[in-house]
């Protein structure tokens, strides 16, 4: 099972009726890597990610996540990953600590571990006086940090982040990325989709999806060299200029 890759995908396709959302993509993500999954709106990023997380069945193609087959071992994959969606997905009517307890228990953590980890999270996020607040009452930046902590609390092999920093200011985003680096330094592989191209610079490698296909895949430096541009912004515009989908 150990081929050195946290995620390995070959010829993955997802069609909805006549529409092919993900059209034959293949790529590998190394263990411990921060992998940026870029693309215009409607390019198929979320659909691809949902297949990797076991939320959606691939139409065809194969792949492994954390060493488990995405077509047949979806429930095994779920034990070894964390997921944070663009739709903020903690329970708003539960308190901060109730949410953490709920999700970590579902992942099978012991009560003692849950207590220790929660205290650590409250300390690193400086949320100690917020832990008994209802999640719906805390600011969006905090919610995102909390959701990320909930997704990584059980020390997964891979964590999937679907536009984790939507709608927050640059300072908050910066802080969020510090959390990502921290998790990465603990050996968690990060798979992140984003629309912010400054964030793309923080990734070890990035892929750019256009109309369901991967059009470019390399480190930010190599991509900038290849497309002879100074910024990722320009690279993205060159790669995605022929996109037919999107809004």
């Amino acid at each position: 099972m150990d081929n050195g890759f946290a995620i390995s995908v070959r010829n993955l396709v997802k069609g909805f009726g006549g529409f092919t959302a993900v059209d034959n993509i293949s790529f590998d993500v190394r263990r411990g890597e921060i992998f940026g999954f870029l693309g215009a709106n409607g390019a198929g990023k979320t659909t691809a990610m949902r297949m990797l997380c076991g939320l959606s069945c691939p139409t065809s193609g194969s792949g492994t996540v954390a060493g488990y087959d995405i077509a047949r071992q979806a429930e095994e994959i779920k034990r070894h990953i964390g997921y944070m969606s663009q739709k903020f997905s903690l329970y708003g009517d539960l308190t901060v600590s109730e949410n953490l307890t709920l999700f970590s228990t579902v992942y099978g953590m012991s009560d003692k571990d849950i207590r220790l980890k929660s205290d650590m999270i409250f300390k690193t996020l400086e949320m100690e006086e917020m832990k008994n607040c209802l999640v719906k009452d805390i600011p969006v930046g905090w919610k995102q940090k909390l959701a990320f902590s909930a997704a990584t609390m059980h020390a997964p092999d891979v964590v999937f982040l679907d536009e984790p920093t939507g709608g927050v200011d640059p300072v908050t985003r910066r802080k969020f990325w510090e959390l990502i680096y921290q998790a990465s330094s603990q050996g968690i592989t990060i798979f992140v989709t984003t629309h912010y191209l400054d964030e793309a610079e923080y990734c070890n490698r990035i892929s750019i999806m256009v109309d369901g296909r991967i059009k470019a895949l390399d480190s930010p430096e190599n991509l900038k060299k290849e497309y002879a541009s100074g910024t990722m912004d320009e690279v993205f515009r060159i790669v995605a200029k022929d996109a037919k989908r999107g809004d």
Partner: peptide, 13 residues
Amino acid sequence: ETGTIEAMNVTPV
């Protein structure tokens, strides 16, 4: 509708 079900579906529950 709120999306919390997805957060549950992606766990091993």
